[in-house]
């Protein structure tokens, strides 16, 4: 089942074609990898899909329905989409625990005003923070964590959203091996639970290992797609990566 799809998606920054007519689809219960050289448009795609950057043309489809006028960031969670950021965006002056509670508690103004987090929220936060090994650090400010811990906290925040589509922008970058194992395990679990997992990643080994499907972007265009083992062998893919 296709949960999220793009049709001829376009985004220009001045003269730069960050996305140039991109058609992609992300399936439930699958890890879809997005690969491509630096500047090929991977992060821009995630930014357009989450309303951080307005699109210039094309369509985004949630399930089978077109999102009119492009995605707005405040609607993203209602579509069941969540994300992480290539460079971490946590609430730095908030505790680790509060960063997670933030996405677990009441969304409406009136509800939030009269709500204090309860045992139910704490249980849920404990579960995800334990999974990424940060429960012991729950009272630390997010900005005082190490680089890797901050990345893990961001992933914990994303999985706390209970989304159906997860957009992970280079979740492994800069992580120690034991942390990588934790992230791999989480991605597999999300896939097995039926989510569409989108993984931006440069490490081909990891992609062969984790991804069910793979798109290769270059200069804002999809230049190849298919099973990672096949796609990553194609000469023009290798060439795009290594330079001409």
């Amino acid at each position: 089942m296709t949960l999220l799809r793009t049709k001829r998606l376009t985004k220009h920054f001045g003269g730069v074609h960050a996305l140039d007519g991109v058609d992609l689809s992300f399936e439930a219960g699958a890890v879809t990898a997005l690969v491509g050289p630096n500047g090929s448009g991977k992060s821009t795609l995630i930014n357009v899909l989450t309303g951080f950057v307005p699109m210039d043309g094309g369509h985004v489809l949630i399930g089978d329905s077109v999102v009119p006028d492009g995605v707005r960031s405040s609607d993203v969670s209602a579509y069941g989409i969540t994300r992480t950021f290539q460079s971490v965006r946590l609430i730095g002056q908030m505790s680790v625990l509060d960063n997670i509670l933030l996405v677990l508690t009441e969304r409406t103004v009136w509800g939030a005003l009269f709500e204090r987090h309860g045992a139910f929220h704490l249980d849920s936060a404990q579960k995800t923070l334990t999974e990424v090994g940060l429960w012991e650090k729950r009272h630390e400010l997010a900005e005082n964590l190490s680089f890797g811990q901050r990345k893990l906290l961001e992933i914990a925040r994303a999985i706390s959203m209970n989304a159906s589509v997860y957009l992970f922008d280079e979740p492994f970058a800069g992580l120690f091996p034991e942390m990588r194992t934790v992230v791999s395990r989480i991605l597999r679990r999300l896939r097995d639970q039926g989510a569409a997992v989108v993984l931006v990643e440069h490490d081909m080994e990891l992609i062969r290992d984790l991804a069910d499907h793979c798109y290769v972007l270059d200069s804002g265009k999809v230049i190849a797609s298919g099973k990672p083992a096949d796609v990553l062998r194609e000469p023009h893919v290798v060439e795009a990566y290594l330079g001409k």
Binding site: S73, S74, A78, R89, L102, R107
Partner: peptide, 14 residues
């Protein structure tokens, strides 16, 4: 507090 630090990221979480 979250809005004070990063309104855009806060909105994407609903």
């Amino acid at each position: 507090h979250a809005i004070r630090e990063d309104e855009e990221a806060t909105s994407v979480f609903g």
